[in-house]
């Protein structure tokens, strides 16, 4: 892991934290950083909702098939185990985990992944979610990689508590968690709206959402909000200038 890449990554993360902060975009950046710096093949950030079920907040690849690997873990899998125990879970060979997590292991192997790590998002004694890393080859993170990954997980956790004027930490965290969970739901709703307007699949809809955000200088959540609030009236084919006619 080259030191300059690592330094660059943390500069980018902290820059984002202190400037134009958006929890979903920040979690996206954390997931992307994992792939870039840790040499993992797929990364995702999951947060627990009020029912203690893990919800997918950000993934380094939004392809529907890969998203499913995280979604599956609302009930079983390494992330759930990591969340419940508050400890790292590493599986170097998913073939050996078929009896432990039959549905998850089958889906992960079918998508081409052989190994997985899950690290807790921890705030003092509480665990609020997990950072989930997938490997195409049978391996887990080495010691240095694990420490960087945990640092990224910690940055993701801390980001939920930042820039709050007052208030108790528990309350701020509860709000931020709710905000992140709802923002992610709005993104899924906006994907549905776009997919229907464009007669496309969800992957295309997400790419379109990203493009709309980029063109308008908006966060992904901001773009999603605009799209769902215009759901009744707007002609997206024209507005987006895209889609298949």
């Amino acid at each position: 892991m080259p030191a300059d890449r690592l330094a660059e990554m943390f500069v980018r993360l902290t820059d984002t934290l202190v400037t134009d902060f958006d929890s979903i975009d920040f979690m996206d950046l954390v997931a992307d950083s994992c792939v870039e710096v840790l040499d993992v093949d797929l990364a995702g950030v999951l947060l627990a909702d009020q029912h203690h079920r893990l919800r997918t907040i950000a993934v380094s690849s939004e392809r529907a098939r890969l998203l499913e690997l995280f979604e599956l873990q609302s009930e079983q899998g390494p992330s759930v185990q990591c969340y419940r125990s508050g400890a790292v879970v590493s599986v170097a060979d998913l073939n050996m985990a078929a009896s432990r997590w039959p549905r998850f292991a089958r889906a992960a192997l079918a998508a081409g992944f052989e190994a997985v790590d899950a690290l807790p998002l921890r705030l003092r004694e509480r665990t609020i979610g997990a950072l989930n890393l997938f490997h195409v080859r049978p391996r887990t993170l080495d010691l240095v990689g694990m420490r960087v990954a945990q640092a990224l997980a910690d940055v993701a956790t801390i980001s939920l508590l930042q820039e709050e004027r007052s208030g108790r930490n528990d309350e701020v965290l509860a709000m931020r968690l709710q905000q992140a969970l709802h923002s992610r739901i709005v993104i899924e709703q906006a994907k549905g709206v776009l997919a229907e307007h464009l007669d496309s699949d969800m992957d295309t809809a997400f790419a379109e959402l990203r493009r709309y955000a980029r063109d308008g200088g908006l966060t992904t959540s901001g773009a999603a909000n605009e799209i769902v609030s215009g759901v009744v009236r707007t002609d997206w084919r024209r507005t987006l200038g895209g889609g298949r006619d």
């Binding site: 997918t56 979604e71 609302s74 899924e188 549905g192 709206v193 776009l194 229907e196 969800m202």
Partner: peptide, 18 residues
């Protein structure tokens, strides 16, 4: 069983709205 909050429900909500 908790499937209620899955992404697919939210995506479908957006599609049906249109």
């Amino acid at each position: 069983d908790g499937s209620l909050g899955g992404a697919v429900v939210h995506q479908a909500t957006g599609m049906v709205a249109v």
